[in-house]
Write a protein that binds this DNA or RNA. Structure first.
Lengths: 153, 153
DNA sequence: TATGAAAACAAAGTCTC
DNA sequence: GAGACTTTGTTTTCATA
């Protein structure tokens, strides 16, 4: 599917990314097509997994989630078993919004959203209780300059 | 609004986060209410900015965006003017999905999605051409373990 | 034969009471 | 919270190139 995505598909994806609540007619008009072909393209891209979850972006501050940390994790236990357990903890914990395994000195980076510093510490304590970690550096976000889910098309 | 969000609101937000394409009837049934009150709550939360953009999550790989970098930026120019310009560049560049100003030694962290390493270098060269940066560390993601927009409620 | 326009039906959103 | 009205999603049909 990947390379079958043409210019029209990309225009449609752009519209959907920007506002998924728009009607098909509106999208069709904007991309210079009509309802049926646009609908067929969307359906195909959904089936192919190009289009995933439809969601709403919530305001963290309104929900009392006022602290955001980026956590740099170094480990010395590279056994499959350790990694398995570490991954499970990350996936289970809802405050972990992102987790990546990295190339280089730092092994993992996490993005963690919590109420406050105390809540972060609770998370941290729970984490190191479950799995051994060699070194952790927490970077506290002072200001969210930009945050988007919109991929460049 | 922040503290006026009750348990019912949170249930509704949870459903919307998980699948914004669900019908009002379906959400109402799940949270144990009916159409009208649910709709009124959603409308209020939209107006209050608790609920933001409605969007679809696209698969980066399918779109050929196979590289993801976390970029740690240190600067020595803390003048308002410099920051202004730096922020403008970040906001303008679509490959920058996230940008946070940090507390501590590292001044900024960016999350950048691009086609490949070459495309990252293009971004990097363009960035340092526009603003002076003291030190940059790029962390390359090898594996996206978790990536969600769903906030813990 | 494949593609898009258009119509028809079902379902959901929106608003009033 | 029930119901009316309107708009939209979804499917089918039809025309056209």
């Amino acid at each position: 599917m990947a390379d079958q995505i043409d210019a029209m598909d990309r225009k449609i994806l752009g519209e959907l990314q920007q506002d998924a609540s728009q009607s098909l007619d509106e999208i069709a008009r904007k991309v210079g097509s009509s309802k049926t072909p646009v609908w067929n393209r969307i359906r195909k891209m959904r089936e192919a997994g190009v289009i995933g979850q439809q969601t709403v972006i919530l305001d963290p501050e309104s929900l009392g989630l006022e602290a955001c940390f980026f956590v740099l994790v170094r480990t010395n236990a590279h056994e499959a078993n350790w990694q398995e357990k570490f991954l499970q903890v990350l996936k289970r914990r809802p405050e972990v919004l992102e987790a990546h395994r990295l190339a280089g000195e730092i092994d993992y980076i996490l993005k963690v959203r919590v109420r406050n510093a105390k809540a972060y510490d609770d998370f941290y304590q729970a984490l190191i209780k479950e799995v051994a970690i060699y070194n952790v550096t927490a970077l506290l976000s002072m200001e969210e300059i930009k945050s988007t889910t919109m991929l460049p098309l």
